[in-house]
Design a protein around this nucleic acid. Structure first.
Length: 391
DNA sequence: GACCCGTGGCC
DNA sequence: TGGCCAAGGGT
């Protein structure tokens, strides 16, 4: 843990507008927040460094992802790619493998691409200029503020999910804080509250508070350093904030999956970079019309047709495996996997699989080689039902 | 501004 | 159980 300044005085705290109900006491409350953070901050691996590259990696991994999930990925990543140049020089396949299971796989490819830009255009060091930094793929407003405040002490206020929740409660903000006017109000308040003496500590303290005290359900207002200036707490209903915008219905899709095995190998293809699970390797999958979702005969027929059209294979569809339900943020799917075998292939099973429409590649993969490919979680659940060696 | 993009943990 | 949430960014 690096040494924060010894003084706690929020002398450089921006002055709140005249008549602001929080203005009189907010400075001492923010000072208590900083003191709380220094005493209670978790000892996380990325808090033991000021290397901008390491901070950057942690911030990208932490996007929409909880700390406990990130820690092991972060350790493995830094061990394999300790510097920007190591990442830039790596194969994309290896980069994706180190991200496998973390989700939002475009983050990994952006990190990789950005590392190559940094080597080519910035001498191998992250740009300290926020405009240049924001130009890198996968680097948005949050990541710019986080990296430059934490690694370089620049006076940029971060706004993430934690900050939105904390400030929405602090102000009893009726607008949803994640968009439009509500988002603008949150950003303005975050800028006002920023502690210029140590922006990195301040930003992390606010996020840490949201992660551990001002949590979504059952916030621990009894131990919150900001409780005495929190309007929502004063109202006795902190959980009423943040208000939420109406959420849309999540569609449910049924997919038939071919577990096509030949000579001890299984057929995989790399998914297109654009769209869901981009760049990952997957089993051949075909969507079913809503009406046919539970019709086993329709599933088998859909699979045979798809394998012939997309891969040039005439397949024998064997026994059904256990269906695999899987929930994405915006989508719910159920996979219906079937064991399949090759009955015939135009030009032979292997050559028939080159460049199917919409796919970059298709390959027969031996069981021992599966580990060299990044696979979606749901696909891993399907393959886990098999018993190697494949026959 | 709306929508897309993963996964695991929580109750 | 299913909805909700998490240190967001791109289009």
């Amino acid at each position: 843990m690096r040494k924060p300044p010894s003084e706690l005085r929020p002398s450089s705290l921006a002055v709140l507008p005249m008549g602001d109900p929080l203005a009189p006491v907010v400075s001492s409350a923010v000072a208590r927040l900083h003191a709380w953070y220094r005493a209670q901050a978790r000892d996380l691996p990325w808090r033991r460094t000021r290397d901008p590259y390491a901070i950057w990696v942690s911030e990208v991994m932490l996007q929409q992802t909880q700390v406990a999930t990130v820690v092991p990925y972060y350790e493995r990543w830094l061990a394999r790619f300790p510097r920007v140049g190591d990442l830039a020089a790596a194969d994309e396949a290896e980069v994706l493998r180190h991200w496998q299971g973390l989700g939002y796989y475009r983050r990994a490819r952006h990190l990789h691409q950005a590392a190559q830009v940094i080597v080519a255009q910035h001498g191998g060091s992250l740009p300290r200029d926020r405009v240049a930094l924001a130009r890198l793929p996968g680097v948005g407003a949050y990541t710019v503020a986080a990296v430059l405040s934490i690694a370089d002490g620049q006076a940029l206020a971060v706004v993430d999910g934690n900050v939105r929740r904390v400030l929405a409660r602090l102000l009893a903000l009726e607008l949803p804080p994640d968009r439009g006017a509500g988002a603008a109000a949150i950003q303005r308040r975050a800028d006002e509250l920023l502690w210029h003496a140590d922006p990195g500590l301040h930003n992390q303290a606010l996020m840490e508070l949201g992660a551990r005290i001002c949590v979504p359900r059952a916030p621990r207002c009894d131990v919150c350093p900001l409780a005495n200036v929190c309007v929502a707490q004063g109202e006795g209903a902190p959980e009423r904030y943040p208000t939420r915008s109406p959420r849309r219905v999540v569609p449910h899709r049924r997919l038939v999956v071919a577990v096509l095995v030949s000579e001890g190998r299984v057929l995989l293809h790399q998914r297109p970079y654009e769209g869901l699970l981009g760049g990952l390797w997957d089993l051949p999958t075909v969507p079913l019309p809503e009406a046919d979702g539970l019709n086993a005969a329709a599933q088998r027929q859909a699979l045979r047709t798809y394998l012939r059209q997309a891969f040039g294979l005439t397949a024998r569809v064997g026994p059904a495996l256990e269906p695999v339900p899987h929930a994405f943020t915006h989508l719910r799917v159920t996979l219906y996997p079937y064991r399949c075998a090759v009955a015939a292939a135009a030009g032979g099973a292997l050559s028939a699989c080159s460049e199917p429409q919409g796919h970059r590649t298709a390959r027969w993969i031996a069981w021992a080689e599966l580990g060299a490919h990044a696979l979606p979680r749901a696909t891993q659940k399907v393959l886990a039902q098999l018993t190697p060696p494949l026959t």
